[in-house]
């Protein structure tokens, strides 16, 4: 019955809705339908991960390369797991100890990877926009695994996926992102995606760690920015704490981690200001006892570990969606 085309649909997405992008570089230009397709596919992938045999062979013959110019444990491991769970070959390349260190340009590196058979390249790079450059110079699909302070689209998609599975549609929901917003690609990608989804996004942190321009101002929309966490939390459906880098203290942006925690740490008392049952999220890795108290991290409302699990499903979804189109 392969010629039998389904005419009906159970999800409300038109049957012609499919993935046509070569690359996934950010969340800012994703259409509503693209986001829905990713989330729907991720739902299926999460089910696959729960089976007695939690691996399929769909991407047999597909090669995924993780090209990391920055240290990473969880993002890289998550992509590697996602690729292997779909039957792809996964090759990990780190900038240190490779030709990258010997001065090879990014363009030459991705072209070399393409020549040895990479279909998809997951890239993390300290420079904003580097994946855009790579994407323009290779026919391999590029997935942005984090570029400088710019974007981390797969994190934003897994965060949305996690929110959806707990609180449903995020339209009109109040999502507070707290911490070092200015230097955070997670905050940016989340803000863009959540705003497009109709959520009320509040960015909160010390004045020196807030953006100087509201993310999203480019399109005329914007999100609330505040230094007052207690006020921001009022009526919040989701609270997302970001990782606090110790280097910010050295750069003179905050007096000390202790002072930061005093104003912006998520503790039981603060979380109680949010709506009952509000989700507590963190993209990881957490500094123990800085961004979130251990008590809150371990509480029922915390979905921090679930974010990690969902990360594999969302990345499987993206690898799956991008592999078919990537073989043109």
């Amino acid at each position: 019955m392969t010629s039998q085309q389904p005419t009906g649909d159970m999800t409300g997405l038109p049957p012609e809705n499919t993935w046509r992008r070569k690359d996934l570089l950010n969340t800012d230009t994703l259409t509503h339908q693209e986001v829905e397709l990713v989330l729907e596919t991720a739902e299926a992938m999460r089910e696959v991960r729960g089976r007695p045999m939690n691996k399929v062979a769909t991407l047999r013959g597909t090669t995924v390369v993780t090209l990391f110019y920055e240290q990473s444990t969880r993002t890289r491991a998550s992509f590697e797991m996602a690729g292997k769970a779909l039957g792809a070959d996964v090759i990990n390349i780190s900038a240190s100890g490779s030709s990258v260190e010997k001065g090879e340009s990014l363009i030459d590196t991705v072209r070399t990877l393409e020549s040895i058979g990479a279909d998809l390249v997951v890239m993390r790079h300290p420079e904003a926009g580097a994946p855009y450059l790579a994407a323009r110079h290779t026919s391999a699909s590029i997935i942005n695994g984090g570029d400088g302070q710019h974007a981390h689209p797969t994190q934003a998609l897994l965060d949305l996926f996690t929110m959806r599975s707990h609180i449903g549609d995020v339209t009109g929901k109040r999502v507070v992102i707290v911490g070092d917003i200015r230097h955070s690609r997670v905050a940016r990608s989340n803000a863009w995606l959540l705003m497009a989804q109709g959520a009320e996004v509040v960015l909160c942190g010390p004045r020196t760690l807030l953006p100087r321009t509201t993310p999203g101002a480019h399109e005329g929309s914007g999100c609330e920015m505040t230094t007052d966490l207690d006020a921001a939390l009022k009526g919040a459906d989701v609270v997302m704490a970001l990782r606090m880098q110790k280097e910010r203290q050295q750069a003179g942006l905050i007096p000390s981690l202790r002072e930061y925690a005093r104003g912006y740490q998520l503790n039981d008392e603060r979380v109680a200001r949010a709506k009952a049952g509000a989700l507590v999220m963190h993209p990881g890795p957490m500094n123990a006892g800085v961004e979130v108290t251990t008590s809150v991290a371990n509480s029922a409302v915390s979905v921090i570990e679930e974010q990690v699990t969902n990360g594999v499903a969302v990345r499987m979804a993206l690898l799956y969606l991008m592999s078919a189109g990537g073989r043109r």
Partner: peptide, 15 residues
Amino acid sequence: NEGRISERLGLHGQP
């Protein structure tokens, strides 16, 4: 320039 484009692109801006 430090402003809406630097913010959008995640680039370091000069004020």
